[in-house]
Amino acid sequence: MRSSLRFFAMRLAGALSAVLGASIISFVVLRAVPSDPARLILGPHADADQVRALSRSLGLAQSLPEQYWHYISAFVQGDWGYSFTAGASVRSIILSRAGATVELALISFAWAFSAAVVLALLVTYRSRPLLDRIARGVAFAGLGLPQFWLGLLLLLVFSHTLGVFPGPEGRISPSINPPASVSGLYTIDTLLALQPATFFDALWHLALPSFCLSFFSFGFLFRLLRSSLLEMGREPFLLVVRGKGMSRWAAFSRHALPNSFLPTLTASALVFADLLGGSVLVETVFDWPGLGQFVVQSIQRLDYSVVQAFILLSAVAYVVVNLVIDGLYGILDPRIRLGRAQ
């Protein structure tokens, strides 16, 4: 018990130091390196008074450690800056747009994960050479294809040419009113509001962008699961379990699958990182009104206040995800949880 507590305490300390380091890096990169951070943040179109005002509020006249303290305490207090092009505080923009990004990422993850698990099971449980070849080809393509270009192709084929999916018009048809916001996720909010037509419209709009965003994660998860399941298939304990009189399927699902999820779990932090980075690209292509799209729009308008907040927030989110995954791993794998007890 004490050893598992120490395990989690160590992980927590590691995560905290990583966040601290990340905040220093983002401070150095965005505040210390640029010659005039206020000008960088505001862009070339802001007038001199605005730049001077921001310089003062950022404390740019102070020493670097003081500036860092200023930067980090403002961030922790939720003061993430003000976007002049959007005319709103960065925090309110991020909060209002997070729902769209989270929904897209969740649906993409669901696609990628379920497809990877089902296909990996199909090609490893019995020999299916043709399906295996196809799935491996798709997975390989998923790892290499530039997502922003794939999205474009999807739009071109399925929306522009075939007309079966909507074009880049956001989360819902322009003629339909969005549901009352409860969770920020349209698929959930429409169900809560009992609006099935809107629900299906939202799903229909999610189809192409989520497929596009899931492509890399699918490839990654499929390759990993497939190889660890094949590895598992050679594990003697499966033979022993079969020798006990367990059916092939039960041995596979109760012993091989849980064991091969463990390496996949560790690697899913990478999936999260890709979903976060990929959302920046895919949302732009599909005009998806999420965080990523806004970040790109701000970059193009040379308004970096949003970008700065997004960068540090994504580091915090990434570290938290890693921490959660480590924790889950510790809970699921007794060798880690109890490893140091002996």
Partner: peptide
Amino acid sequence: DRAMQRIRGRRIALIYQDAMQALDPVK
């Protein structure tokens, strides 16, 4: 195989060669 499942473990049992690997590590 279904009928064999009732025989394996109950009427014919197996002791595997390598005890280090014969057990599921997470159960």
